[in-house]
Design a protein around this nucleic acid. Sequence first.
RNA 1: GUGGUUGUAGCUCAGUUGGUUAGAGCGUCGGCUUGUGGUGCCGAAGGUCGCGGGUUCGAGACCCGUCAGCCACCCCA
Length: 424
Amino acid sequence: MPADRDVMRAPKGMLDVLPPESARWIDVITRFASRAERFGYGLLLTPIVDHYEVFARVGATTDVVRKQMYDFVDRGGRRLALRPEGTAPVVRAYVQHRPPTPWKVWYLAPNFRAEQPQAGRYRQHWQLGAEVIGIDDPDVDVEIIELLWGFYGELGLSDVRLLVNSMGDAETRGRYREVLLAYWRAHETLLGAEMERAEANPLRILDSKRSDWLDMLERAPQLGEYLSDASAAHFERVQEGLQALGIAFEIAPRLVRGFDYYTSTVFELASGALDAAQNAIGGGGRYDRLAQEMGGPAAPSIGFGSGIERLLLACDAEGVLPVPATQLDAFVIDLVGVADTARLLAELRESGLAADRAYGGRSTKKQFAAAGRSGARWAVIIGADEAKRGVVAVKFLRSEQPQCEVRREEIAAWLRTRKDEAPT
RNA sequence: GUGGUUGUAGCUCAGUUGGUUAGAGCGUCGGCUUGUGGUGCCGAAGGUCGCGGGUUCGAGACCCGUCAGCCACCCCA
């Protein structure tokens, strides 16, 4: 049996998010939810586990599926897996329920991948994402990128690069694959042990970060040259749409991304403030055949995922989205142990004010210290003398205004009025 | 999964060529006569030196293993 100290802690590569840091999560999630709803997307909630096959369909050469999945057999003998990525469950839900298209949904969900953890790379990480199922209009590609791009702007991020590319359709990819494979074979010496990987999935080598391959990669044949007329036209319209909205992008010919299901438009948003290898804060693309591959109707689709942990690292690096200051309005201080404290506190809270107190019969001094630490705007003091006269004392904790008295029955309304007048 | 690096109180870190009861700052708690916070002064709690083994008369310091964080590859958000 392992010792408590080894086991009474979050599993490797997984995080606890404590207050006050967690307040930033509320902030990020709320902004995304509000923006997505404004764009006409509705929240989709799917189970945290799905049948193994749902993810297996994502692709046989997709690493996330092949060697990073947390899968298990449940008590009914079903093979299930913790969700390793966000798109497959959405498409599965589409295939199952057949909602009218275009089906526009957003989601917030944890993903699980058993990889080697690092800062910005966790075994459980949370993604905010959006998908549009059942339409291949390039305007949708533009909209989905705009949804994500503008979200980063709303968070205050400015050092973000948008990389776009087109993977083409199945036929172009097949042709390109062969060309690329021939090219890798010509560089077999340089590839060495990685030649096996190159044979299995020639595209995967393209976005390698190895410096000794840089020259070889730059000279490699480019996918763009092999695009069909239809694919090229689609990609062209996406670029025009982005330009029309003033969204700055770069074409990244070697951007191929790690999921087999991608076709046509793919994109990635990289934070320039993160110099680590984990600088991709969001990414996605088209997957025009996935619904069919899951046994559903033809439903060309596009979507993206954005990792919350990385997003927050990028915010830290840019010095934006600080931990929000406390929102506490009032701190109730009980100087004489009167029974009214709980009642007064309840009144304030029920009237919509954020209010708190100290516990355990602390001394006056300690209660004021706690009030100061809490960041509350006012201390509402119940003393023997005041209670006798039917009033409470109000002290301003964030300014030098003199302390005043307010009638006991009016205190909630009194604080509400002042809170609404000057919300600081 | 591969390679590298780090690991001392809740947090950030000291800890001299291995040598007695392991330190500081911040934070927490308490006190400075019990009705007024943020500053000040005093005090306290809090550490199996990540864990296990080894070398040694003696290990927080050295060696091996292991776990965890971090970095690169890989992959990706």
